[in-house]
Computed example of a mutant assay.
Amino acid sequence: MMSIELIELKHDEHGTPVGVFIPFRYWGVLRHTVRAYTPIFDLMDRYGRPKIWEFVEKQHGPVNYLEMQMKSELAFIQKFARGEAIYVEDERCPSKPHFVRHNPDGSEDLISRDWEKETDVLVRQLTPAGQGVYAFLLKDPRYERIKARHKDQHTKDGEASST
């Protein structure tokens, strides 16, 4: 087994480390020990696999990773608040046209998607409601505000069409 060198960053007034530096060269060894799609996993995976980001930067210029993460989270929150699912491909997808469907209740399903007919065939449930990778976004304060705004807008649209 490979020995992993961790470096303590700062210490507080009690001498307790407040951070640890993990060199990216160890990410390949540590990756399987970290729960997938958590903030630390996404951060390490993003920087631990720089080739894709080098490609993106060559195509589009410098990438602000934190800004991209924040925009992605907001986009996901907005979709969930509107009751829409998010479709992604990850290592849980055996082949195309399989996708992981992140549902607005925080659950996840492995599905087969027909994009032309806009239909899903459930292969199996991956996680129950509130237990999915992005379920933490349902607790974000922006989620309730956006959901209420969407509901108000939907109600106003319904009143306008009935008059």
Rank of each mutant, 00 (worst) to 15 (best):
G61C: 05
S95R: 11
N103T: 03
D120H: 04
E118I: 07
F76P: 00
S72K: 00
R31H: 10
E116R: 03
P17M: 07
K117I: 00
P50H: 12
F55D: 01
H60Q: 05
K117Y: 05
S72E: 10
P39A: 11
E84Q: 13
S107F: 08
L30W: 01
V123H: 11
N64F: 08
V100C: 05
W115N: 03
L30M: 12
I146T: 05
D157H: 10
H98P: 03
Y134Q: 08
A160E: 14
E91A: 15
R101T: 01
A129F: 06
P94K: 05
E89A: 08
I22A: 06
L66F: 02
P128N: 09
H11N: 12
P94T: 06
V20M: 12
H11V: 06
T155S: 04
E144C: 11
W115E: 11
P94W: 13
R142T: 13
F55N: 03
D42I: 03
Q153Y: 03
Y134W: 02
P62H: 08
T119L: 06
Q78E: 14
R46D: 13
P97E: 15
I22M: 11
E108Y: 09
Q69L: 15
V88I: 15
V133A: 13
R142F: 09
V63A: 13
I146L: 08
V133N: 01
H98W: 14
E67N: 09
A81Y: 05
V133Q: 13
A81G: 03
K147A: 08
P50K: 03
S3N: 14
W115T: 14
E13A: 07
T155K: 02
V63H: 01
A81P: 00
D152P: 00
K156T: 09
G61Y: 12
F41V: 07
D42Y: 08
L6Y: 11
F55E: 08
E84V: 04
D109Y: 15
V123S: 11
R31A: 11
F80R: 02
C93T: 06
L138H: 03
L126M: 12
E67K: 13
T163H: 02
L126W: 10
L9N: 05
V18P: 03
T16P: 00
P62C: 09
V29P: 00
H14W: 07
L30H: 09
D105F: 02
S161C: 14
E89I: 10
V34T: 13
E73Y: 11
M44T: 01
R101F: 02
L6K: 03
A129Y: 11
L6E: 01
I77Q: 09
V133E: 10
I77G: 07
D90R: 01
P23V: 14
N103R: 04
W53S: 11
L43I: 11
Y47K: 06
Q125R: 13
T155A: 15
V100E: 01
G15R: 08
K139L: 12
T33V: 06
G130K: 14
R46P: 00
M44N: 02
G83D: 02
F80L: 03
A148P: 00
H14K: 10
N64S: 15
Q125F: 04
I52R: 05
R149H: 07
T33Q: 15
K156W: 06
L66W: 14
R142M: 04
L137R: 10
L122F: 03
A85P: 00
Q153E: 13
L6R: 01
I86P: 00
L66K: 01
R49K: 08
L43F: 12
